[in-house]
Design a protein around this nucleic acid. Sequence first.
RNA 1: GCCGCGUUCGUCUAGGGGUCCAGGACGCCGCCCUUUCACGGCGGUAGCACGGGUUCAAAUCCCGUACGCGGUACCA
Length: 492
Amino acid sequence: MSVRVRFAPSPTGFLHIGGLRTALYNYLFARHNDGVFVLRIEDTDQSRYVEGAEQDIIDSLNWAGMEIDEGPGVGGDFGPYRQSERKDIYHKYAEQLVESGHAYYAFDTVEEIEEMRERLMKSGNPSPKYDAITRQSMKNSLTLSQDEVEKRLENGDEYVVRLKVPRKETIRFEDEIRSHVSFDTEGLDDQVLLKSDGMPTYHLANVVDDHTMEITHVIRGEEWLSSTPKHILLYEAFGWEPPTMAHLPLIMSPSGGKLSKRKAESEGIPVNTKDYITGNYEPDALVNFLAYLGWSPGDDSEIHTMEELCELFTLDRVSKGGAVFNYKKLMWYNENYIREHSIEELRPRVEALFLGEGYEIPDDEFLTTVIELLQERVSKIDEFVSMGSFFFEAPKEYDEKALKKWKDDTPVILKAYRDKIEQLSEQDFEAVTLKDKIKETIDEYDVGFGKLMMPLRVAVSGQGFGPDLTPALELIGKEEVISRIDTAIERL
RNA sequence: GCCGCGUUCGUCUAGGGGUCCAGGACGCCGCCCUUUCACGGCGGUAGCACGGGUUCAAAUCCCGUACGCGGUACCA
């Protein structure tokens, strides 16, 4: 049987970075096994539905380099791929369960259930449930007469369908990542399957869809582990073979706990995939980083393309414990990828960024040189602009820290250098010569290299760090360099 | 509270009874390269949660404790 996996997010907002990793593991697993990667939109909670969220999910997946084989907008033989469009299917299966005695209609209002819980808590039950015992005192098709039930249904009274969870049974299943897992049904609620608004709950929809879409492996976050016994119960009730389960370790915040939006942001970690897109991160770096957050190929390698990851990925190498998001390591990956990209790959993107900031680019050759000079010192692509704007315009202000190197004798030395290079013809205004002149000047004044280098850098770029200086001077050109030196001497 | 799942350097991880006084990566620190900023190279720092077993031998197997995380909804 060929492998079919699905990524099944709810369109309740921007795609979370944890969701992206779940998608990635599903994708890698699918590709590794020549299987199919399905996107299914789980939009059964109408109150939490967010317009545009579905598109964000698709855009995010595409940006990261995952191709969706089946899903909304893509099509496939198992559609529709939005749960809101599959209501009839769920109703059919819910009724089937009622008929076979595995589920029942319940007419209790939210208030009545609340009351029941409070009453039980007062009498010493710390975690009251709608279960095999309490359902006997509630209004449902197990306690009401058949006539009464039919009358209520015909009347259009609100109802839900609940799973009839058996008492005192142990549910065991094999998890690909955790091996044996077992739960006692004692702790389970009679899970609502069909809500009073006619929508299925996650549990019903999920099981029905995974089965009807012929999903072979359910790879999802660990937060689902505790509800898996309910799902197993459902598969059993339907008489279906459950798919292979694999529960992934959660991504944690550096301060502990699930990487929630609030927590992550206060720790400087972007949480939405969208933030990485607009933040100009390298998609292949993020993918590489995410792949290693809870998985490793088992050797000492660290850098892999998506294609290589597909080849290497197996579920048995996924770790069990939660993985803390390490932003610095992400940035290390990002730097790596920027360095590995060719100038041709980088140029259009860097060009767009400069253009976006209102800079005019003289010609391709100029931009190419800028990229070459900066490529090894940039960790994120937008730094080409922040670090390289001085190639296009004189610095508006000088970095304070760098100015500490500006001493009393600086203007004199700088002026001497300025006068030397002023003598140079346009053709001789090139890196090697400019460097020679620096040497000459410091020899004359008997000072160290940095004594002139640093101030010169500040005068021309405004910064205390940046690209190799003399080639930068050459690119900027004689007239402009001299004018910047003059301005600096005057202003400082 | 109850249920479940976890726990190897600060972080991500390798390792699954002897080859481990535990290997790699990020970070941090130092040195070299560079008479600038980086890249790079070399080196250092630091860990098997704890307590009991089993065994000739345990990071590795078993039990317990602690801690962490998740779940406990007509949310997913």
